[in-house]
């Protein structure tokens, strides 16, 4: 028990990721307002992106450009650039999804005059 607890405390980045992810998920499930649902969705996406960035962090490392052409390469001095590239792409995807979601919200509001899920469902029937 104590071991598990200290293992969790020693990984604050993973703890933060889990909290943000579950928070976003909770908002998506419990809120009736469509824009709040979108905010929850965006939190979930952001938490995954945060996780990707945090696993690629390395103490004392820098951009992957060689310091000198003659010395041998010390892998410990360089950060892996790939997760950052993946993160950029994932951010773009997230922005596009949120954009489509907001456009749908606007269209729903214009048609039904409400953003409350239950009111909209009542009006559909």
């Amino acid at each position: 028990m104590v071991d598990t607890f200290s293992a969790v405390i020693q990984r604050p980045n993973l703890l933060t990721f889990v909290i943000i992810f579950l928070w976003g998920f909770y908002i998506m499930v419990t809120r009736y307002n469509l824009v709040k649902k979108l905010i929850g969705m965006y939190l979930v996406q952001t938490s995954v992106i945060y996780f990707l960035v945090s696993i690629s962090a390395k103490k004392g490392a820098t951009v992957p450009i060689l310091f000198s052409a003659t010395e041998s390469v010390q892998a410990a001095n360089y950060a892996n650039p790939l997760p950052h590239v993946l993160t950029l792409t994932a951010i773009v995807v997230g922005v596009a999804t949120t954009g489509v979601g907001l456009a749908l919200c606007a269209a729903i509001y214009r048609r039904y005059g409400s953003l409350d899920e239950q009111e909209i469902i009542e009006r559909l029937e």
Binding site: M28, L34, M41, Q45, V48, G101, I108, R111
Partner: peptide, 20 residues
């Protein structure tokens, strides 16, 4: 519109799980 919104919410959740 409403069906598309639900599809978007669940589809994005699926995509986030996949990316994770």
């Amino acid at each position: 519109l409403f069906a598309a919104f639900r599809y978007l919410i669940l589809g994005t959740l699926g995509a986030s799980f996949y990316l994770l």
